[in-house]
C-alpha cells in the first residue's frame, strides 16, 4: 500500500476495531498521530506515515444517551454515543456503547474498550 491512499483504509480501520484496536497513522516527519482514516498529516501536511494499531482502550471525554434512538438503532434498548481518548495517545475516536441507561452509569473519565465493529451500529465499545 502506498503511504497516502484512501483505498481500503476504512476496511483496515474496521478490521482493527474487530480486534479491539484503533488503527492510526503516525507522521514520519513530525510524529503527529491521527486516525488512519485521515490522509495527510494534520500538523505538517506530510505524506509519509507508519500505520500503527493501538490497543483500543481509553477514557470517556463526553457522551449522550438518546431518549428516542435514531433510525437503525431502534433495536437497542439503551446505549450511549461516546467520544473517548485512546490511552497514552493524543487521539480521540467515537463509538456506540450499549447497556448505558442513565448518565450516572458512565461518569466522565470512565474506562472503555473497543469491542468490535458492528455492520449495523459501527464502532462498538464496552465499559471496563
Amino acid at each position: 500500500m502506498k503511504n497516502v491512499t484512501s483505498i481500503g483504509v476504512r476496511e483496515k480501520f474496521i478490521s482493527s476495531a474487530q480486534n479491539s484496536k484503533i488503527l492510526a497513522r503516525k507522521c514520519k516527519d513530525c510524529n503527529t498521530i491521527m486516525l488512519a482514516t485521515i490522509l495527510y498529516c494534520e500538523k505538517c501536511h506530510g505524506k509519509k506515515f507508519n500505520l500503527i494499531e493501538y490497543p483500543g482502550k481509553g477514557y470517556v471525554d463526553t457522551f449522550t444517551i438518546h431518549t428516542v434512538p435514531p433510525e437503525g438503532f431502534e433495536d437497542v434498548e439503551s446505549y450511549a454515543w461516546v467520544v473517548f481518548t485512546v490511552d497514552d495517545v493524543l487521539l480521540r475516536a467515537s463509538g456506540f456503547l450499549p447497556g448505558i441507561k442513565k448518565p450516572s452509569d458512565l461518569p466522565i473519565g470512565s474506562e472503555v474498550e473497543v469491542n468490535g465493529f458492528d455492520k449495523k451500529h459501527g464502532l462498538v465499545l464496552k465499559k471496563i
Binding site: 457522551f63 449522550t64 438518546h66 433510525e71 467515537s94 456506540f96 459501527g122
Partner: peptide, 26 residues
C-alpha cells in the same frame, strides 16, 4: 444525521441533538 461525519457519528448512533448534547456535556 447525514450532515454529520457519518462513519463516526450518525453511523455509530449519534443523532444531531445527540452530537450537541455531547458538546454540551463537555
Amino acid at each position: 444525521s447525514y450532515c454529520s461525519d457519518f462513519f463516526y457519528e450518525g453511523g455509530n448512533g449519534a443523532s444531531f441533538p445527540g452530537l450537541f448534547a455531547s458538546i454540551a456535556r463537555a
